[in-house]
Amino acid sequence: MTTNKLQKNDIFKIFKLSRMHPEEEKVNKLIEEFNSILELAEKLNEVDTKNIDATSHVHGATNIFREDKRSDFTAKEKILSIMPENSGTYIKVPIVIEQE
């Protein structure tokens, strides 16, 4: 891992990937903060992690399952009542350009 100094373009790309609009006047400050956070992160380069497993789950529990049983949620109407825009029980959104 080399020191990755982030540029404006990189930030814009991350904004887009995160589905947020960059606020032009704040971008320079953000880049600065971002780079200092990454600098902090790069401290980890000092640590030798050869042959060390990555921890994705902190306790060793495995195989927690549920049986294949259906049970209907009792407050469906409550969920449907909080949709910001709807058409009947459908959620309404601006048209999706193309179905993937």
């Binding site: 891992m1 990755n4 982030l6 990189d10 991350i14 990937l17 995160s18 971002f34 992160a41 980890l44 380069n45 640590v47 992690t49 060390i52 497993d53 990555a54 921890t55 994705s56 902190v58």
Partner: peptide, 22 residues
């Protein structure tokens, strides 16, 4: 988003998970 994105995932995220183990 940045540390999970393509090209940075191993260098940041997996590295951090390994240090977490330590």
């Amino acid at each position: 988003t940045y540390v999970l994105s393509e090209g940075y995932f191993d260098a940041y995220y997996i590295k951090a998970q390994k240090v977490r183990t330590l």
